[in-house]
């Protein structure tokens, strides 16, 4: 039988492993939803903590739920008028955040893809991000974005086509 401290240790390690595996993609999604880095980080933290807390047995939450919570919190945040001015200032101060890992060679290429992504309509970008970098199934994406799975699949296909047009030079 596990003692209390051993149980705590394994829970700690499970938590850290889960964060190590999913935090980068969660932050990528949050950066696309928020206007500044500070807001994106707050969104991820709130969503992760809230989703874990909802789990009764302390098991990791379904990823679709965490992404859905990020999206809901981002909508709440955007509605708060009083924070708008702060966000604008913070966004200017932060400068553009790198969405993807940038080695010296790939920096320019990755920034071009990031720019192309930011020009995509939100409905396409959300699905693409969750599918390609979040590793979610269309069923999970449907749950996260509250849309039918078929809609998620068609948005994904249209989104890929749009992105491909915008990144023709990069992948030529």
């Amino acid at each position: 039988m596990k003692s209390g401290s051993q149980h705590e240790l394994s829970a700690d390690s499970e938590w850290e492993q889960w964060l190590g595996r999913h935090a980068p993609a969660l932050l990528l999604f949050a950066r696309q939803q928020a206007r500044c880095e500070a807001d994106a980080q707050d969104l991820v933290q709130e969503a992760v903590v809230e989703s874990w807390r909802r789990q009764s047995q302390g098991a990791p939450p379904p990823l679709g739920c965490v992404y859905a919570t990020i999206r809901h919190r981002a909508i709440d945040l955007a509605r708060r008028e009083e924070r708008r001015a702060d966000r604008e200032v913070a966004a200017q101060r932060d400068g553009p955040q790198c969405w993807f890992d940038c080695g010296v060679d790939e920096r320019e290429r990755n920034l071009l893809i990031q720019k192309a992504m930011s020009h995509l309509p939100d409905i396409y970008r959300d699905v693409l991000t969750l599918k390609v970098w979040g590793g979610l199934t269309f069923g999970e994406i449907a749950q996260a974005l509250e849309i039918p799975a078929n809609t998620a699949a068609s948005r994904y296909r249209y989104g890929l086509m749009e992105l491909r047009k915008l990144t023709k030079e990069v992948f030529a």
Partner: peptide, 26 residues
């Protein structure tokens, strides 16, 4: 094209933010 996109990795989480997340374990 999907494979090309998957080669891009989401940017690493800043260390201070990861530390903050780890400390926030519910």
């Amino acid at each position: 094209y999907e494979a090309e996109l998957r080669r891009l990795q989401p940017a690493r989480v800043p260390e201070h933010f990861m530390a903050r997340l780890q400390a926030a374990r519910p």
